[in-house]
């Protein structure tokens, strides 16, 4: 434990970022040098995937339908309401699919990671692991890291499909857009490349979500309030960083 001088806001933030960097580096080093057992990784991936699948689907559905609505009314202003398929396809597959999957994994699996690890820290179980000569990075962080790297890109594909599907339902059955036009628009403007880029985004989000959540849990403050605070910090920091990251990635991929 370090005994820091009373920090100002700026040095406090810088110190956090630095500590997070070291944490992430250590986690990456342990993951590469002593990979965790495949069984535990797959089990975690199953947990993360199944835990978040239903909510990703439900939310993707609502987001897709709302995007169709907004797009339709916005394009109608210029008489282009039949182009709503393009808008839905681009917005959903390039942006909303990865964001929906990422934010729900952050909300469910990320908070679970932060809470579990923070509880272990608060109850002295991480010290106990170290005393039993079990490296906490290897035992707690590496499996979660690899597992989210597997699960999130797959969830992105689900979210892509469902957002577009919901957009189709709303556009065709509620707003009366021609079904053939919609599908043709989607097919012309979206390719495998976009889905694949979305999965890459998902992978980057997975890294950020896992490393930030585990970090907040790992350095949780003592006491039961510490666990709550760690969980909340995890959600907020993940959200902010993923929004910015999402933009940078979109810029690199489609810019």
């Amino acid at each position: 434990m370090s005994n820091t001088v009373k920090p100002s806001l700026l040095t406090g933030v810088l110190a956090q970022v630095g500590r997070w960097g070291i944490f992430s580096f250590t986690a990456a080093r342990w993951t590469c040098s002593a990979p965790p057992a495949l069984g535990s990784v797959l089990w975690e991936a199953y947990q993360i995937g199944v835990q978040s699948l239903s909510i990703v689907c439900v939310i993707a559905f609502f987001i897709g339908s709302t995007i169709a609505l907004q797009g339709y009314y916005a394009f109608r202003e210029f008489g282009g309401q039949n182009l709503v398929g393009i808008f839905v396809a681009l917005a959903c597959v390039r942006e909303m699919g990865p964001i929906v999957a990422g934010s729900m994994v952050a909300a469910k699996a990320g908070t679970a990671m932060a809470a579990t690890i923070a509880t272990m820290r608060v109850k002295g179980q991480i010290d106990a692991l170290e005393v039993m000569a079990v490296n906490p990075y290897r035992y707690l962080i590496s499996p979660r890291l690899l597992a989210s790297l597997i699960a999130l890109p797959l969830l992105v594909v689900f979210a892509d499909f469902i957002t577009v599907f919901a957009g189709y339902l709303v556009a065709v059955y509620q707003l009366g857009v021609n079904s053939g036009t919609f599908l043709e628009n989607v097919a012309t403007y979206i390719g495998m490349r976009d889905v694949f880029f979305g999965m890459i985004k998902g992978g980057v989000f997975a890294l950020l979500i896992c490393l930030l959540s585990c970090y907040q849990g790992y350095y949780s403050q003592p006491g039961p309030e510490g666990v709550g605070r760690a969980t909340n910090r995890a959600v907020v920091s993940v959200c902010i960083i993923c929004i910015i990251m999402n933009y940078l990635l979109s810029e690199m991929m489609y810019g």
Partner: peptide
């Protein structure tokens, strides 16, 4: 706490669709 977050988000996003339809 976790259920509360996830389910309130589902519920209000569901309502959002209807609200958006109506308001637009």
């Amino acid at each position: 706490a976790n259920d509360a977050v996830v389910r309130s988000i589902i519920t209000f996003l569901g309502m959002n669709y209807f609200l958006t339809s109506a308001l637009l």
